[in-house]
Structure formats: C-alpha cells, structure tokens
Design a protein around this nucleic acid. Structure first.
Lengths: 194, 194
DNA sequence: TCTCTCGATGAGTATTCAGTCACCGAGTTA
DNA sequence: TAACTCGGTGACTGAATACTCATCGAGAGA
C-alpha cells in the first residue's frame, strides 16, 4: 500500500468512526452528511467518494458490529459450549453496542422502506445463529425439545422490551446489566433440561 | 353568521378533522400540509389562512382533546365524586384519544424544541387537575395523606409505560383496557384509605 | 345592479439536505 | 523532471416541503 492508499483507508475509517459517534449522540435522522464531513475534517463531497449514500454509512457501521457478534456466536457454536455461556457472551457483545441499537430501535419506524428492510435482515442473521445454537443443543440432548422459533422470539422480545423502556425508567446504568439475571433465569427455565 | 362566515368555519373544522385523521394514520411528521389540503378539498394556501403553521394545527387538535378531558375532570372535582370514579372516567376519555397520543409519544423526540414544549405544557395541565382532585380528597379525609406529586407521577408513569409497550407487545385490543384493572388497584392501594 | 369585501387559489419563494461534478494538486511512475 | 493518476474539493443541483402573495370571483351591502 502506497501513501495514497493508506490515506484513503484512513479517511474511510475516520468517517465511519465520526459517523457512528454522531449517530449515537444525535440519532441517524438528525445527523446531516455535512456534519459528519465537518467532524471528519473532510469536504462534504469526499464522503460520497467513500460511501454511496447516507444509508450505506449506517449499514456498514451495523455490519461491522454484527460481524463481531456473528463470528463470536459461530465460534461458540463450533466449540459446542453450553447455551448459558453463549447467551452471556452475546449479551456482553450487545452491551458494547447498546447505544447504537437504542438509536436504531427508536428511529426505525421513520427510516425508508429500503433501509428498514436492510436493518431487519441483519437482525435476522443474528437470530439464525441462535436458532442453530439451540438446534444443536437439542440434537445433543442438552436442552428440552422446545419450539426453537418461540425460544428465539422470547429472547429477542425481552431484549427489545427492555431497550424500549430505557428512556422512561432507567436514567442511569446499563439496561443489559439490569435484565441479565432475569433473562438468564427465564431462558434457562425455557430451554435447559433437568 | 352569514354564508361566508359559515363556510369559513366549516372549512376550518374540515381541516382539523382531516388533519387529525392523517396524523393518527401516518404520524405528524410524515403528513405534509399539501396532503391535508388535498384531503380537505381545498388549495394548499387556504390551510395557512386558517392556521399560522403546521405546528399550530396539531396544537389546536391537542387543545380540543385536552379541553374535553379538563372540563370533565373539573366537573367531577366540583361534584366531589370519589377518586376511583374520577380515574375510570379519565381513562375512558384517554382511550378515545389513545391513537393520537400514541403518535405523539412516539414522535415527540423528533419535534422542534418549541412544539415539544407546547405539548408537554398541555400534558402538565391535565396533571394539575389530578393534583387538585387528590388534594381535595385528602382535605376531605377521603384518602390517605400521601405525597400528591408522587401519586400523580405514578399514574402518568404507568400510562406512559403501557403506551410505550404497545408497538411491541399488544398487537390487538386496547392498551387502556389491558391496564385498567391493575392501575385502578395500585392507585387505590396508594391513595384510598381503609 | 354596482361596488366592495374577503375567503380561496396555486404558482412561486425560501430553506434544508442528500448527492454530483468539473477542477485541483499532491503523489506516483517513467 | 515531466506526464499522468486519482483522492479531495466545494459550489452547485434537485427534491421535498413549509409557507407567501398577487390575483380572482362569489357573496354582502349600498
């Protein structure tokens, strides 16, 4: 890589970093592309050399977070570690990106059909990893033979539920930390035999 | 009133009616003033003869709903009917406007500072009526001597809580109907003596 | 019936923003 | 060093949408 290529990559990374910071702080809809460019110390037009449009910015940011979550889960599945550990590790990953997900959850109804579809598709990928993990556990007789879809829906329903409550009830501290024990308990009751 | 004045009033009422229908259906932010004019069968500019701007439209719609709620509560206070009946009647009134309030609750963070202030100010008026009702009850020894502010905050906190859950958990049926019994029970425990 | 009033009209204005493009100049290559 | 490449620039465009104003014409009043 020569100087030019290094600079290009550096600029791209800087844009992603600044964009994410602004999205978390002010939301996706209330952040303009000009602001992101300004914060990144580049011209407005430069942003569109690196990203097709504003939507592809948030999609790439989301892809990076989900990539990390996905690879960790797949790692755990291949090592056949038990479900509780899988769940705890997933919650740890989620906690790191909690603020971004809260923004997405709040603004989702106002996004374009296209962007909403993309975000929900990426959400479903994570769910499918959980499906696989649970199916594997059932095959190996580690958990009860439950309706896998219901189990996954329960877990994600619970997470969405707590995220939605945050602005009203939880002024400080982490949402994830608050619900960890109860989710783990209910999830275990639902899935793990003995 | 001559023909002109009658027509003017009729047009104004029609705009308010159509605007509210659109706001409930598509949200305040996703409804354009052109659409409201079209649905009302008037020219775009005519809308601004009747209302200073788009914000004043939603403010007037809200004022009318709150006017009805306020007068009913004040009526009940003056007749010194017991608190449970007051609460039930309030919930009935609220239920009629539930859809509008759900829209406002969801979109509120995206409104202008100015509009948000106006809406929250109107909300506080309703709360003050409850304050009065509860203080009267305490003065007349009908309820226990509780912290009035806490009691009102509890009631409105509970309502906001259920409203926020609706999009996630309650696919059908009324939110208000769902939480009526538990709110009434807890509220009575908190306030009513014996 | 004639004149005037005023509610209605809709093309036009202002503003906000995402996205474009002709041009520049630093870095690369020969 | 000269020619070329390509990432960066920022004024500009286009679209969406709230809001305005010169003008019209139906109805009121003489």
């Amino acid at each position: 890589m020569n100087k030019r290529q290094i600079q290009k990559k550096k600029t791209r990374e800087l844009i992603l970093q600044m964009a994410k910071a602004e999205f978390v702080k002010k939301g996706f809809l209330n952040t303009t592309t000009s602001e992101i460019a300004e914060k990144s110390g580049i011209a407005h037009g430069t942003l569109f050399l690196h990203f097709k449009n504003k939507d592809s910015l948030i999609v790439e940011i989301l892809d990076r977070e989900l990539e990390e979550i996905s690879s960790t889960i797949q790692n755990l599945i291949s090592r056949a570690i038990d479900l509780e550990q899988l769940l705890l590790q997933y919650l740890d990953l989620l906690q790191k990106e909690e603020e971004l997900f809260v923004v997405l959850a709040r603004e989702l109804p106002f996004y374009s059909e296209e962007l909403r579809r993309k975000i929900l598709f990426r959400d479903s990928i994570i769910r499918s990893h959980f499906h696989k993990a649970i199916e594997l556990g059932i095959k190996e007789k580690r958990y009860r033979d439950v309706d896998v879809t219901s189990a996954v829906m329960f877990l994600f329903g619970t997470i969405n539920y707590y995220l939605s409550l945050k602005p009203i009830f939880l002024k400080e501290g982490s949402v994830i930390k608050k619900f960890k024990p109860s989710i783990v308990k209910t999830f275990k009751q639902l899935l793990i035999s003995d």
